[in-house]
Simulated scan of single mutants.
Amino acid sequence: MRQAEPDLFIHAGDTIYATTPLQAEKTVEGGQVWRNTLAPARTRPAQTLEEFRGCYSYNLLDEPLRRFNAEVAQVWNWSDHEVTNNWSPTKDLGPWSDYTEKQVGILQACGTRAFLEYAPMRWHAQDEAERIYRRIPYGPLLDVFVTDMRSYRGGNSSNLQARESTDTAYFGNAQVDWLLRGLKASRALWKIVSLDMPLGVM
């Protein structure tokens, strides 16, 4: 992809896989054995700030990725694996024996902090220091609106609610208002809305 010399790369999330520890060896299709370089932070699911940071620093051991990062402008979004698989505020980690930290709020705090430290983005003002959603003007032709479909959502469920409530929340009212105002006010010819999950109209 780097050799295509892109002007911009928009990462739609899963910048790390904090849930999945690495194995020293893994047999892949065709019987070939893949051997991983191991690091302490990648031997169990990330549960501390240092382990989440370690997931990002581990990725940077890859020299082609470092070259790509050095040459291509990037906009990062996040999804679930920056914290844990399919996380929401009500995720129950009790049955997961490989997690000693059972409070998803702790994982979210550590995962958020590590993401903000490694993502190529400016932090917001102190009152919203951990805000992910933002608008990035990219010259007169393009505005990129990066959304956050994780931090403000209700708990994961079967999604069979008969009416709108906090259980059906996805973006949060403040983010929806921000996005609608921003799209309406934008004078850019092109507007990209970065989402980590599909968005439909009902």
Rank of each mutant, 00 (worst) to 15 (best):
L116F: 09
W96K: 11
A114G: 09
R44T: 07
F52S: 02
H81V: 04
S57E: 13
R44S: 13
R67I: 01
F68M: 01
Y58M: 06
N69D: 07
S57P: 00
P95E: 11
S57W: 12
N59S: 15
T48H: 09
V83H: 12
L49A: 15
H81Q: 09
C110D: 05
N86G: 08
E63N: 10
S57F: 11
T100P: 00
I106S: 07
P89Y: 06
G105W: 09
S57K: 10
W78P: 03
T84L: 07
K102R: 10
A109M: 04
Q47P: 06
Y56C: 08
D62F: 11
K102P: 10
R67A: 10
T90V: 10
V83K: 12
A46P: 08
T84C: 15
Y58E: 15
N86A: 04
G94T: 13
T112I: 13
W96S: 07
S79Q: 09
L60Q: 12
N59I: 07
E50F: 06
C55P: 08
N77T: 15
D62S: 14
P64T: 11
C55Q: 15
E51L: 08
V104K: 08
T48P: 04
E71I: 01
D98W: 15
T100E: 08
H81N: 14
W96A: 03
T90N: 05
R66Q: 15
E63H: 06
V104F: 04
G94P: 01
L107K: 09
E71F: 02
R66G: 01
L49H: 14
G111Q: 03
L107M: 10
E51R: 01
Q74G: 04
N77D: 05
G94D: 11
L61M: 10
T100F: 08
T84M: 11
A109D: 11
T43K: 13
P45G: 02
F68E: 02
L65K: 03
A73T: 11
F115L: 13
V75T: 06
Q103N: 12
T112L: 14
E117F: 00
Q103R: 15
A109I: 09
A73D: 13
C110R: 02
W76H: 01
H81M: 10
A46R: 06
L61H: 04
R53H: 10
T43Y: 05
V75M: 12
C110L: 00
C110G: 11
V72C: 05
Q47A: 11
R53E: 14
R66T: 02
V75D: 06
R113V: 02
R66K: 12
S79M: 05
V83N: 09
C110I: 00
V72D: 00
G54D: 14
T48I: 10
W76Y: 12
Y58L: 07
S97N: 07
L93Y: 01
W76C: 03
Y99D: 01
R44M: 04
P95W: 08
K91W: 00
N85W: 05
Q103W: 04
R113M: 03
